[in-house]
């Protein structure tokens, strides 16, 4: 890792400058994470008086627990659904906005602000839209003969949280897709056009492949978002229900550890989640490196 060619020299100053950041990281990040690692191998007795070291027993139990496996599957469905919806819609918007000249700024302004809305608030907004007694969407769906009820029907609840989570993420994806589209050389598109390729053909054979670095990057970011930042969406609306249909992993860690008081199991779940974040972060950073070194 580089520094400047010419640097200051001081025996203590660099350490003093780094101290606040490093101290906070050690106390509030590294220490709790190592505690989670340690606790994941302990089991407390029912009264919380003694704990015994049980090696990987907590993990074995987790992977034998149908509820945990179900939560994994729910998380996968939720993450894939959110990623596809958020990316598909924003790609469509970005392609359309990219054609515009004068109105581009306007549309961008109209599409970026949902980024500012907290996931929990996004959840409540859509929860209200889909409310079975006063909501507008169920009322319209009734016109089509569909009886919407996210309080009883697990699929309906899942659709609701996916829409809420994806809605908030559209802005982010839109901005990156638009930037990606603008970096595609116009000459390539013109050349294809001269060769007689239609609009759709040009998009799928030239624009979309050239956009793939952006798409891949956004896929990782969206999966991370859906897995870890959507706690608020679930907690403020469905609370994991009905019948655990929207019980994603992050929500389950919170429930088991904080509400249920099952420390060993919660810590083991934390460790698994940590492993997932680490893998995803590494993928994301390797991608950034590659792009920089083109």
């Amino acid at each position: 890792m580089q520094t400047k060619r010419m640097t200051f020299s001081s025996r203590w100053l660099p350490y003093a400058l780094l101290a606040p950041q490093v101290l906070i990281t050690l106390v509030f990040f590294v220490w709790p994470a190592s505690q989670a690692l340690w606790q994941s191998m302990l089991r407390e007795d029912p009264f919380g008086l003694r704990s015994t070291f049980v090696w990987f027993r907590n993990f074995e139990r987790l992977f034998a627990d149908p509820h945990y496996l179900a939560a994994m599957k729910t998380t996968a469905i939720f993450a894939v659904g959110t990623t596809f919806l958020a990316m598909g819609v924003s790609l469509l918007f970005a392609v359309m906005v990219n054609r515009m000249l004068r109105s581009r700024e306007w549309y961008t302004t109209l599409l970026v602000w949902p980024y500012a809305v907290a996931p929990a608030i996004a959840g409540v907004l859509w929860w209200f839209m889909f409310n079975t007694s006063v909501g507008i969407v169920p009322y319209m769906l009734q016109g089509f003969g569909y009886d919407w009820n996210h309080r009883l029907d697990g699929t309906d609840a899942m659709i609701l949280v996916v829409i809420a989570a994806a809605w908030k993420q559209i802005s982010y994806n839109f901005l990156f897709f638009l930037a990606g589209l603008q970096s595609i050389p116009q000459s390539l598109i013109e050349a294809a056009s001269i060769d007689g390729a239609g609009r759709m053909k040009r998009f799928w054979t030239i624009v979309f492949p050239l956009l793939s670095p952006t798409t891949f990057f956004l896929m990782v970011v969206n999966v991370v978002y859906a897995m870890f930042d959507t706690f608020g969406v679930i907690h403020a609306t469905t609370e994991g229900g009905p019948a655990r249909a929207t019980n994603i992993l992050v929500y389950k860690v919170f429930r088991d550890g904080f509400v249920g008081g099952n420390l060993g199991s919660s810590a083991a779940q934390s460790v698994i989640l940590m492993a997932i974040v680490i893998v995803l972060t590494v993928i994301q950073f390797r991608w950034i490196e590659r792009r920089v070194n083109y």
Binding site: M1, T3, T7, F8, S9, S10, L13, P14, Y15, L17, L18, Q21, V22, T25, L26, F29, V30, W31, P32, A33, Q35, A36, Q39, F228, D229, F231, V250, V253, F254, G257, F258, L263, S266, A267, S270, L273, M274, V277, I278, T281
Partner: peptide, 27 residues
């Protein structure tokens, strides 16, 4: 600055990216 353990400190800072609150709630 050039100083001892620079890379080590850099990694300590990097680690925060990998440990969002959501994965270490209880501790």
């Amino acid at each position: 600055f050039r100083f001892r353990f620079r890379i080590f400190f850099f990694w300590i800072i990097f680690i925060t990216l990998m440990l969002p609150v959501e994965v270490r709630i209880v501790p």
